[in-house]
Design a protein around this nucleic acid. Sequence first.
DNA 1: ATTCGTGTTTCAAA
DNA 2: GTTTGAAACACGAA
Length: 255
Amino acid sequence: MPELAEVELARRVLRDRLVDREVGFRLLDPRLVRAGEVPAALTVTAVLRRAKYLLVVSQRETLVLHLRMTGRLSGAEAGRVVLVFEPSGGPPFYLEDPRRLAELWVLPSSEVEGFFTARSLGDAPWPEVRPAAWWLERLGGVRSPVKIALLRQDRVAGLGNIAASEVLWRARVPPMRPARELSPAEWEAIGRHTVAHLDRLLDVEVGLDLTYVTRGGPNPFSVYGRAGAPCPRCGTAVARGVHGGRSTFWCPRCQ
DNA sequence: ATTCGTGTTTCAAA
DNA sequence: GTTTGAAACACGAA
């Protein structure tokens, strides 16, 4: 469910609520935990983000959290709560997850680097705009359609299915083009529009304060989820297809 | 009743 | 290197 920008907003909210506090943890669903054991309490020194992974850091231990499709952090208890953060001197904070796909690893802080090395997580395309050469280095040799290439977390980390459609639409690149055939100008556009897309989403989210635009409410995207609707740029009906088992949306005329 | 599709990502196998 | 399917899980819709 969460786009990268939503994870970043969650990071900021968690940071504001947890850092420099003794934080108690109440685990309501043990299936959340993939490694280690959730401690009763920690003094949190930082809340960081690596792609869509959230890191709740203390001196000895770090909680690495991934929300997957349906996890959600919220200040209000709602739905199926799987973990409660209880900071001293502040209100509790909830991780809810109706499908229980979210994952948590409790690691010694010294082993966090190794954790990400083992998962061969690629580099971040946001918030700094990455130039064409950066994209060419990472995806320039990939034969698969650029839509699929953008989801390769081992090359470029943090872009999901929604972002891939939206960025390609903004950059006017057809999703089925083999990544290796893209010109430097097209990669430059993808780099620029990746940041534009995520910046805009973050702005919207900050205004809503963790309500998650990708759940409920009106569709905030230009082409994603809009098959048959007019393209916002040219009015042509938005197409829908499937690449690698994931749905893709694009404008057959201006892309 | 059963199947399908759903925002994520990794992994194994072909 | 690519492509495909499965897996984690739950639920609403067809």
